[in-house]
Design a protein around this nucleic acid. Structure first.
Length: 339
DNA sequence: AACCCGTGGCT
DNA sequence: TAGCCAAGGGT
């Protein structure tokens, strides 16, 4: 069977819209100015499955602490993980550090998709994004935004995630337009902005879209229903326990998770009593992860000092994953150590 | 290929 | 409110 072929909508219309309506984001260079590969890379890693508003303060913090990829590569991985605490998907932070070391060793970011793709934490999307935005290579980074725009422009109703390949293949035709190849970075970011501000998942603002007259889903009145998603797997529920042991000066006893798996490499509260003590019931905290929900029973106790050699940090400021921050604050509250 | 991996804002 | 979903990658 002959593969479906698609005609690209006019890139020039999208680029004109972008010139007038682009979002001004901290990691973006001024219009016409070259992008800094370090800034592009750092922001792209943080933006994986994470919204702009969440990323912004972390990006500022990282850039202040690590102004260059060399300074990031020279930092202890524990410091990088600590600064990432709360942002989620902690493998990104471990890979960020490993990637910084590789790039520092190479003397800079590779200027090819294949070279970028070989680095830790850089998959097909991110390699294309850095290639297009930082190096003006004619690549299309197909993320959730571009996937949605393409599914609508061409009215592709194949359910995700199975339909990912078909939609991505259709999206590739965007780059057949010479104007898109002439400005790959702007074109990709224009699609991001279109997807975020107009071609939104729930109620798309088709009346404001520069591609309204080129959109098959709009013509059929089905834009809001695309892309189609398959049934979501049920999210199981789990239970667990967290122990909050404080000392007289407000330090809390912590453990470090092994480098792989859930919260890998991060500081966490112990799941077993670290010492014999009169543990007070500090209630329960609820948390929802991607693939399960969790009820964590919190027990708390205070001693004059923590066991010698124990890993510790000030309870008020310890760099913890959000689920552990919730549990620690519940424990502090039960011990009248107000968060 | 299928599964694992966080978090928070929005509706 | 309970689900949806966001600039994905690793294994």
């Amino acid at each position: 069977m002959k593969p479906a072929s698609y005609a690209p909508p006019p890139a020039k219309k999208l680029l004109s819209w972008y010139a007038a309506h682009r979002r001004h984001l901290p990691w973006r260079s001024a219009p016409g100015a070259p992008a800094d590969p370090y800034h592009v890379w750092l922001s792209e890693i943080m933006l994986q499955q994470t919204v702009v508003a969440t990323v912004a303060p972390y990006y500022a913090k990282f850039l202040a602490a690590y102004p260059t990829v060399e300074s990031l590569s020279a930092a202890p991985v524990e410091s990088v993980l600590g600064m990432w605490a709360g942002l989620g998907y902690y493998a990104r932070a471990r890979n960020l550090h490993a990637c910084a070391r590789a790039v520092a060793g190479l003397g800079g970011f590779p200027r090819s998709i294949e070279g970028l793709r070989a680095l830790p934490g850089i998959g097909p999307y991110t390699a294309n994004a850095i290639a297009a935005i930082a190096f003006s290579l004619p690549a299309l980074p197909v993320d959730g935004n571009i996937e949605r725009v393409a599914a609508r422009i061409f009215a592709i109703a194949t359910p995700l995630p199975g339909g990912k390949k078909a939609i991505a293949t259709a999206a590739e035709c965007f780059m057949e337009d010479k104007a898109a190849r002439a400005a790959p970075g702007d074109f990709a970011q224009a699609l991001f902005d279109l997807g975020a501000t107009i071609c939104a998942p729930q109620s798309p603002g088709c009346g404001r879209c520069p591609w309204e007259r080129h959109c098959a889903a709009r013509a059929q009145g089905i834009a809001a229903a695309l892309p189609v998603r398959g049934p979501k797997p049920a999210r199981p529920h789990r239970t667990g326990t967290a122990y909050v042991l404080l000392d007289a000066q407000g330090d809390v006893l912590l453990l470090r998770r092994p480098p792989k798996g859930l919260l890998g490499g991060m500081l966490v509260l112990p799941e077993e009593p670290p010492v014999a003590a009169r543990w007070r019931d500090a209630g329960a905290v609820e948390h929802v992860f991607t693939h399960f929900s969790l009820t964590l029973s919190v027990l708390a106790a205070r001693r004059k000092t923590l066991p010698g050699g124990a890993l510790r940090a000030p309870a008020a400021t310890a760099p913890l994953p959000s689920v552990m921050r919730k549990a620690l604050d519940a424990g502090r509250l039960a011990l009248d150590d107000a968060p």
